[in-house]
Design a binder for these strands. Structure first.
Lengths: 341, 341
DNA sequence: CTGAAAGCGCTTACAG
DNA sequence: CTGAAAGCGCTTACAG
């Protein structure tokens, strides 16, 4: 089956391809009779216009690109799900790209997306992204940029985030209210904003409740895996620093850390109360079930797309646009790992 | 910053755009001096040719489309991860689409991908897909089709799967060898091939070990969620049918079913041994840890892409191509939920 | 209401 | 080794 074109349709109907194009695109200056002829035939032959050829004139691909650090990660899967749902409703296609937490990849992938003339790029930054030229290039090319989750505060654009500092504060406060006085914090690397903010939320809660901050109780995780969490907790325990609670900036390393606690005969929550961040799938089925902070990933994905459409519409009308920042609220999920006896 | 074009580069260098194009695309009939001039300038100006315009001549978009039932599902995330990795290596972009297990969506999404002129479509079929016209249309349009995971046996194409029947047999056999004689099977809907094959593997194992098959011990899950598994197990238990093991075609409903077993004072694995399918994230951290069948999702994703490239190359050379079928082996993960005392 | 023509930005067969 | 020209399949300003 060779590909149909406007020209072929036009020949079959004995009209010009200009008219066929107009009928297909809903222009008003086409007679109802002609319009119907065209619509019927194109439906019967299952004709769809060539997207690339159309782009050459319209300059709109109806494709967006999404760059995330990882794909097989529940939070990002949820974000992507939200984006896909909204994109489908607006008849957009979505190219997914994975930076593997690498700044170099991020630069390379952005170039690929720009080459592809996507209408927008949504990005959650890699852990080691320290420079924003590649993001500025997106905006300079006239492509809409949406930052979400791991954003940079130093670049203006629409943004979709949660209040990391407040959420971390809430988690820490929850442990304090349940009697913890010496809380360990498993944090992320120094650079990412979310890792900084969650750390600051933790610190602020200690302050507000007059608990002393001790940097020895802060453990830095790099890979955020459960096995890393296990190792880190083992080595922390071997230092014999007193503690009665753990707030981890992510669920997964905490799951490993819990294993270590158990093996060291520390009961959760009796001896040590723990709370994570992210509400990963099945954390509610662990024993004890894991207290955590739930992030509305799907809704955040929807919102990314909505902000994109808003910016696109005002761009089409050549209006100026004020970047929007959406801060989603999180939910404290109190489960058994932090219960008071 | 207005977009650069070949023409602009050519003007700056005082040569023709034809020559610029050739230099950029590595044609040999360009003098080294000219080639270098072009390459240097295009690097300095960060020029990349317009992908859509190039397509109009080359008929290759270097984009593939992937249709999966769900995205926030560990197995599919892994498959996608494997596809993304391989695609990136070959400089391909990947459009991800989600059918939500709906045949109607599947048809619609395939049309969108064909309109987009993707070079290939990879698909794992929706639960209720009962007709293959939409898949045939892909092939008729000259687009390469790769089926994976939930495939149709009735349509010829390259395929990437696991041996579901054998894997289910292995899981069931494992329970039998550990003393189970009355094994419940949580199965999927009637249509999908994987649901049929896993059921048949279960049945065959019973036969081979001279255990009677009782259709009352087969429970059908539709949504494959943990809460559904919980409800199904509750209502099964209320029927007072004897059983001592459960083989579930997916981990998630089994997690719910385990909750129900516990609440009914049935000890796992002492009273009831259970095994799932899929090796979902954190199933190793449940208590008891869940025995299951591990599927190599990432490798399967890699393989999908490799088969695509093979077919593409032989298509370019206008050679005939024999569809390949890759059957990956799975791994029996023996954990505590099926341990013999 | 309809259509001829230009043009989007490339690639490539061909001439020189 | 280089370039003029055709053409991929659309859309749209313009003429009638």
């Amino acid at each position: 089956m060779s590909k149909l074109t406007l020209e072929i349709l036009a020949e079959k109907l004995n009209i010009s391809k200009a008219t066929v194009s107009k009928a297909l695109n809903g222009y008003k200056d086409v007679s109802p009779a002609t319009r119907n002829k065209v619509l019927n035939l194109s439906k019967n032959l299952n004709f769809y216009p060539n997207a690339q050829a159309a782009f050459l004139r319209t300059k709109s691909t109806k494709v967006i690109g999404v760059i995330i650090p990882h794909i097989n990660h529940p939070f990002f899967s949820n974000i992507v799900r939200g984006i896909l749902d909204s994109a489908d409703k607006h008849n957009y296609l979505v190219i997914i790209l994975k930076s593997n937490e690498s700044y170099e990849n991020e630069k390379r992938l952005i170039d690929k997306l720009l080459q592809q003339n996507v209408d927008g790029i949504f990005i959650s930054l890699a852990q080691d992204t320290h420079d924003l030229k590649h993001l500025k290039k997106i905006q300079e090319s006239g492509t809409i940029l949406i930052q979400f989750d791991k954003i940079s505060k130093l670049l203006e654009s629409s943004k979709v985030i949660i209040d990391d500092r407040k959420s971390a504060y809430t988690a820490t406060e929850h442990l304090i209210k349940n009697g913890c006085k010496k809380i360990v914090h498993i944090r992320g690397q120094l650079l990412p904003q979310i890792s900084i903010d969650r750390f600051l939320g933790y610190k602020k809660a200690l302050e507000d409740y007059n608990l002393s901050y001790d940097s020895n109780r802060v453990i830095m995780a790099n890979k955020m895996t459960d096995s890393e969490g296990y190792e880190l907790m083992n080595s922390f325990i071997s230092k014999n620093i007193e503690f009665d609670g753990v707030f981890s900036m992510a669920d997964l390393p905490l799951v490993g850390a819990m294993e270590s606690l158990k093996q060291n005969n520390l009961n959760i929550p009796k001896d040590i109360k723990v709370i994570g961040f992210g509400n990963w799938l099945l954390t509610d089925r662990l024993s004890p079930s894991l207290s955590t902070i739930d992030q509305p990933g799907i809704l955040m994905g929807n919102e990314c797309f909505d902000l994109f459409i808003k910016e696109l519409n005002s761009k089409k009308k050549k209006l100026s646009f004020n970047y929007k920042k959406r801060v989603f609220s999180t939910k404290l999920m109190i489960r058994n790992s932090s219960k008071q006896e």
